[in-house]
Design a protein around this nucleic acid. Sequence first.
DNA 1: ACAGTATTCCAACGAATATTGGAGAAGGGC
DNA 2: GCCCTTCTCCAATATTCGTTGGAATACTGT
Lengths: 221, 221
Amino acid sequence: MGDRAAKDALFAEFAAVGKALGSPKRLELLDLLAQGPRSVEDLANAADLGLSTCSAHLQRLLAAGLVATRRDGTRIWYSLAGDDVAALFANLRSVAQRHRPHTEQARRAYLGPDDTEQIDLAELLRRAEAGDVVVLDVRPAPEYAAGHLPGAVSIPLDELEDRLAELPEDREVIAYCRGAYCALAHDAVRLLSAHGRQARCATDGILEWRVAGLPVQFRAA
Amino acid sequence: MGDRAAKDALFAEFAAVGKALGSPKRLELLDLLAQGPRSVEDLANAADLGLSTCSAHLQRLLAAGLVATRRDGTRIWYSLAGDDVAALFANLRSVAQRHRPHTEQARRAYLGPDDTEQIDLAELLRRAEAGDVVVLDVRPAPEYAAGHLPGAVSIPLDELEDRLAELPEDREVIAYCRGAYCALAHDAVRLLSAHGRQARCATDGILEWRVAGLPVQFRAA
DNA sequence: ACAGTATTCCAACGAATATTGGAGAAGGGC
DNA sequence: GCCCTTCTCCAATATTCGTTGGAATACTGT
């Protein structure tokens, strides 16, 4: 008790989790998995990785205990090991944001000009319940299917321009996506604004929603 | 906006924090720094590192934005960049604890037999205010000086056996130390019990106290 | 059993990281 | 100015990590 070897072993356990968080691509995989379970090939495409490389990263996350697998026939579905893993990831992002000046810069470069007014999730829910606004989920359809905000309508960003007619013209649209560092909702709002719609962007997305422990819905409203 | 290069740059920012968390020794340094500022040489001794090695790790933490430095004459004091860094570390530990089976095993091996009853911080405060118990800080004196629980008495573990007389015999002693994974309080309680004292161990320590945003005290009660 | 699909394993390369001792730099006291 | 303390930088080492393409494995449907 209290000796060096035991202390080193304990901190090595913690570091195993830290090491898993030490690669941009693995963090991107965690970000994707926070939206719902996915297969290896799907993840490889989404994260712009070779199949072997993606598999290797997933193995690493698995060994660290951050993800879990479930076999379905010939396909293997990876998912987060728990909501606490999503919370850890969110925590890591916010530390980066607060203590690394370049992060804000990188965020802006990725999300595009922050010309749009934003709205937080609590306010969004209040408005949605009052019926003032349409809540729009612009993530790919499978992610919507894996869980979305109660009452949200799904129109993936790449179909949005063709499906504008499905959105009522008399109500403001509030778009959300994966999380605070996801570009989809920002792009959607720019597209909607360009078509003369009243649109705003949620500051957060499904990741933050899940971390807050709020309930997701599985079927369309 | 929304392109690969920008996304990669953003996740590289997050990963810079992750990489800093990917070494047992750096995590140990963060754990020590959560107790208060320290000099390089002091940290090297405490973490059982060579001076150059320690300096290199600290540089890495500094580059990641997790720690800050302050020069005082010929000595440089390192400290955590913020309480959110301590929270991130605590979060990482709890993910390890929950999802990595070996962690619990390593914890037990380090802390020793969990023969002692434990008490959480909220309950500890309640008892202390009621005057039922003595709250005992068994960390090294400089850590106590850098901030301790309100009303706590300081007797470092390695002086405890010689200073038993300072503790009243008619009240139960509750010992605390750096945090949930620190062995000092456990060792102290075993020592006190062996001397026939009523003693218990706090489940948490200064790290969790700080993360909870509770106030620390700087002078003796 | 066979063909087909999804994933992991393997070997090999270059890149990044940890550790070391010793030289160098920055500041304080005389 | 000079010496002393404290820390960082440097060069060299061993190790670990990321990526790749192709072979091996696991399962499905016929």
